[in-house]
């Protein structure tokens, strides 16, 4: 198990379509996406077919009606479609973004930095230690600048891979050290920028165990295309043993 997490993983995206969904809200999102794509493909085809067919059966005289009422009828048919698209989409957006995470949601901090993702787990005290940019030094094993004077940080675990238990909601706390990055986990249907100076939150529930790529979706400099990491969704038992191992390793380290 731990070997799988340490090995560099390369996940192939083998479809010309949405990658397999591994999250709870992704089911509704995929359904919404499918219906939207069908609706616009039909409209696009209809417009082209209308144009071409009308050209082919040339010229017919004495169409009785002037075109305007027909146009208004079509518009009247299309407007409810737009309203439907707008309302259903807001429903899903509200469910995932207006409402905060449940109180039991697991906290993980995601920090973007040119050109690397860091994931910080708060440890047994469930609180993140203070970080200071002036203390950040990746070479000494403190890339985020954890302040050793803050006891809450003494059990924080910093990882370069994101490991999450299946079936438990996670609340990601998004930060950036330097420039704007974009946290994008296609398999979790999650995207939110990490903005320096802001702490943003996004929450979701991974459901299907497996590995998923984590990408950067906001151009952030020359290494943008290789700013990637791996999300492993594992069973709760595997997750607990992984986190316990990381916490043990953390407590054996000298204090930063």
């Amino acid at each position: 198990m731990s070997a799988m997490l340490l090995e560099p993983v390369c996940i192939a995206q083998s479809h010309l379509w949405l990658p397999p969904n591994g999250s709870l809200h992704g089911i509704a999102l995929d359904r919404l996406m499918r219906w939207n794509l069908i609706a616009i493909c039909v409209c696009c085809l209809a417009a082209h077919v209308w144009l071409i067919v009308a050209k082919l059966r040339r010229p017919r005289s004495n169409h009785a009606a002037y075109s305007t009422p027909f146009r208004w009828a079509l518009l009247a048919a299309l407007c409810p479609m737009y309203v439907w698209l707008a309302v259903t989409a807001q429903h899903l957006w509200a469910a995932s973004r207006y409402a905060g995470p449940s109180l039991e949601a697991m906290q993980v901090e995601v920090v973007g930095e040119q050109f690397q993702w860091y994931f910080r787990y708060p440890g047994s005290d469930a609180a993140f230690g203070v970080t200071r940019p002036a203390l950040a030094n990746a070479a000494t094993g403190n890339p985020l600048g954890l302040d050793a004077r803050d006891p809450r940080g003494s059990d924080d675990v910093v990882s370069s891979a994101l490991v999450l238990p299946a079936g438990r909601e996670v609340d990601l706390r998004l930060r950036s050290v330097d420039v704007i990055h974009g946290l994008f986990i296609p398999g979790m249907r999650v995207k939110e920028n990490t903005v320096p100076g802001l702490v943003l939150h996004v929450h979701f529930t991974p459901t299907t165990p497996g590995t998923y790529p984590i990408l950067c979706s906001q151009v952030c400099g020359l290494g943008h295309a290789r700013m990637q990491a791996v999300l492993s969704v594992v069973s709760p038992a595997e997750f607990d043993s992984w986190l316990a191992a990381r916490e043990r390793a953390r407590s054996e380290q000298p204090a930063q």
Binding site: Q13, P19, V219, M227, V230
Partner: peptide, 17 residues
């Protein structure tokens, strides 16, 4: 739809191809 982001100079990266 397959998730390919903009501004990627190559299709294969450390975590995904």
């Amino acid at each position: 739809l397959a998730g390919e982001p903009r501004h990627y100079e190559r299709l294969t990266g450390p975590a995904t191809s």
